[in-house]
Design a protein around this nucleic acid. Sequence first.
DNA 1: CATTCACCTTGACCGATATCAAGGGCGACC
DNA 2: GGTCGCCCTTGATATCGGTCAAGGTGAATG
Lengths: 229, 229
Amino acid sequence: MSAEAKVLQDLDHHYLFAALNDAQRGGLLAHTHLRSFKAGQLLFSRNDPAQAFFLLQRGEVKLYRVSAEGQEKIMRLVRPGMSFAESVMFMDEPRYPVHAQGVRAGALLAIESAAYLKILQASFDTCRTVMAQMTRRIQAHWDEIEALTLQNSRYRIVHYLLGLVPDGATGAVEVTLPSRKSLIAAQLAVTPETLSRTLHALSEDDLIGVHDYAISIPDVGALRRRISL
Amino acid sequence: MSAEAKVLQDLDHHYLFAALNDAQRGGLLAHTHLRSFKAGQLLFSRNDPAQAFFLLQRGEVKLYRVSAEGQEKIMRLVRPGMSFAESVMFMDEPRYPVHAQGVRAGALLAIESAAYLKILQASFDTCRTVMAQMTRRIQAHWDEIEALTLQNSRYRIVHYLLGLVPDGATGAVEVTLPSRKSLIAAQLAVTPETLSRTLHALSEDDLIGVHDYAISIPDVGALRRRISL
DNA sequence: CATTCACCTTGACCGATATCAAGGGCGACC
DNA sequence: GGTCGCCCTTGATATCGGTCAAGGTGAATG
């Protein structure tokens, strides 16, 4: 398969492009650039002018903010197949609202916002899909704000683990932490120490078993119930 | 002015309808209902099926979630001229993601989502405006998540006060708290006690003066600088 | 005019989580 | 294969903000 065909296939599977026809997708190719990056490489900084959005092919990217004291909060960990910074293109003077840095080396597609916007104009279906996706994001943010204000760190951690369990799974499940624990901690707004201690406490209660990055959950239902205590 | 003309005028000023033509706005009238509510009245509950979104005319509405222990986090305080629940209409099976309750008696317009969506199809301009607005909301959420995780309660309170200052104002400013202090506290994810103590501490430092709901800021610049400490 | 009630304030105390510090394990690289 | 450095863990301590409790004030109500 040619490189171009591969790119087209990647686009095809993503909600931002699924409702486009072949001509539209093809037209975007000229405005799409493949870019590879290394672990630790800064992809863009907060407040940089935003002319493009991204589709991650391989590797891992973190979107984050930094406090005045240097403390870091990860707003989102991006894994292959996910897009990011696509919503800023609708602003009048688009600037990235977060920093983006490679966590594991990989490659991404950069799609020029202007070209995409032009195509969007001709596809109300895609507009609707984009708006539905943005709504989902908004609701996810509300969930996160709720978790940060109404729930404690144990809740957030258990909730995160349950999010790794495949839909509909019951009984005993084995999940794998998708990132370094310190990154997961920064996502959940706890310190690595607290994450470590909480996982330890959960395994003391026989709710989970911890072996490095493999977490075994003997009874998903029991963990789900425990979330409320 | 007739009631209908009044409603049309309200719609006209709002971003959701600004780019529509007269025929489109007129068509919505048949699908728009005026509803008044009392203080304390529940407008909808979380998870209720959502067939309409709202434009507040008078009074005040809080959008909030409640923890298992009954603790309340206000996600947004809605004031006249603001819309709410407009983004849920893009979901496939729309349900309100928060509770809505009247805080001060008033009235609102309920606009049927289906009718609006149909009109949206014919106005890419409005689509873009809606998406831009949703992007602004998303970024506001990121700001809030950052404030909740990277900043302490004093920061959030000072930031809130600065948000009340008119754009571009410098020197001495007088602002008025737009709601009961307990509601503001619930918005900032602090207890009323903490809000009270923090305001007191700020006035001890002569950064603000507190007289019930009137807050005087002798030097906005000084307060802005203080936010980082 | 007295009473009540909601809201705010103030004080004393407590607890969850951060911070600081030290040690261990494991992979990368010479 | 040794050493270095990163990440995770564990323990001791600190602190921010919450909880509980007790007034105080002002507006609404009878």
